[in-house]
Amino acid sequence: LFILYSSGTTGMPKCIIHGHGGTLLQLVKEHQLHSDIKPGDRVFYYTTCGWMMWNWLVTSLASRATIILYDGSPLVCDTSVLFDLADTYRITHFGASAKYFDALKKMHKMPGKTHKLESLKYVLSTGSPLLTETFDYIYQSIDRDICLSSISGGTDIVSCFMVGNPMGAVWSGELQSRGLGLRVEVFDENGVSVQEKKGELVCTAPFPAMPLGFWGDSDGSKFHKAYFSDYPNVWSHRDYAEITEHNGVVIYGRSDATLNPGGVRIGTAEIYRQVEKIDAIEESLVVGQDWRDDVRIVLFVKLRSGQTLDDNLRDDIVKVVRKNTTPRHVPKKIVAVPDIPRTMSGKIVELAVHNVIHHLPVKNSEALANPEALQYFENIEALQQD
């Protein structure tokens, strides 16, 4: 049905083959049961054709919904263009990346006051974890009566492991539920299923949207290494996550990008959630730097126009991270950069930056939308000092 390339955030993009029946069944389930898409609904998701959310969006035609397409920047017309579409075409389901909603929040936009949004009943977000504060922003500034679903899956399964639940409660900062028919669990370091504890996100039983394999991987060895090498017959999704007391899920970042200062495992999203509350910061990227037989946390920030990384801003960053997490989460080095490298689908590439600061080769530069940004991380003097 689909042949998709992964984004390349953690290495060379994988060429993934997705089958017909299982993929369609999975997506129709997500649309109709988890997103309440009905015949006649109008579904919009801001996405490029290179992101799996394009496939997700197009497949809503199987539920006899109408899809709305838009090609261009989401921030033109004083950032109102997407909500103009929502009014003009009476959109019922409005989806975009978490970064888009975060940007609206930082610009103090109030779409619920500037637009009618009379048909809107569902807002979806994916691409990265939606901040707790952004949950609050969407309900306060867009519409209090919509169902807000932060969802997560990936190109690997061209669908979601964590989805919405139109009949359930929405808890700020949590993905509402695990998908029906999917045995999604979190394993601790001993491979034991746990709840209310951080660990590896896994799926312990076969599922309809499991890919058929990788193109050109005739013996299946690359496919097995990618998903089944950690635990026998268990799909490892490479997310560092926690199942909450509400049976929701919190994702703390990619498990292969977790930080280990002093041997304590920290998800990168735990730091992003705090840093991106600060209006002066447009975007950030955090990595671990090997330093004196340990790992220290290095935070790179791209500042908004007119802002400077001075001592006051550094202090603000340190204070907000320490107050809302732990002293171990506080970056040892904070460095301003002109740009942050990202994939074609907009995901930041922590592994590539990690390799650059450690003078290691970057294997996935062809997958980057702005590979020239990697030069900003080379030979940084501050990273050669205590």
Rank of each mutant, 00 (worst) to 15 (best):
H224C: 11
K302G: 07
E282C: 14
S128G: 03
H108W: 13
E283S: 14
A367D: 02
V192D: 13
L130C: 05
R254D: 00
G248I: 09
S284K: 12
A269E: 13
G288W: 08
I380F: 02
D217R: 06
V202S: 12
H358K: 07
R183K: 15
G199R: 04
G168V: 02
Y139C: 05
L201R: 14
L124Y: 01
L24N: 12
V320F: 00
M52N: 10
P331C: 04
I138C: 11
T114K: 12
L61N: 02
V123H: 03
S365H: 11
M167D: 13
G306F: 10
H34M: 09
V81Y: 10
A98L: 08
V298W: 02
I142S: 11
R254N: 00
V163I: 14
W56R: 04
A98Q: 07
D239R: 06
C147W: 01
H237Q: 05
E133H: 04
M12G: 00
P74E: 08
V301F: 09
P13L: 00
Y240F: 13
Q307W: 00
Y45T: 07
Y376K: 08
L148P: 08
L201A: 14
T48W: 02
R178L: 11
T244H: 05
L313Q: 09
W171S: 13
G168H: 04
F223Y: 10
P166M: 04
L85Y: 11
Q375S: 15
T10A: 05
R90C: 09
I68A: 12
A65N: 07
P338T: 04
L180D: 14
V234G: 07
T134A: 09
K277E: 13
L33T: 09
N190S: 14
L175R: 10
Q140M: 05
P206G: 08
Y5W: 05
V249E: 03
F207S: 10
G22V: 08
G253P: 04
K302N: 12
E350Y: 01
N165G: 11
L259A: 03
K323Q: 09
S141R: 15
D102W: 01
V194K: 13
S150A: 15
S35R: 14
L182G: 03
P211M: 05
S365G: 00
P111D: 05
V337F: 10
E270K: 08
I16F: 01
G21W: 06
L212A: 07
L299C: 09
L259F: 02
Q289E: 10
P166I: 04
A280Y: 04
T244Q: 06
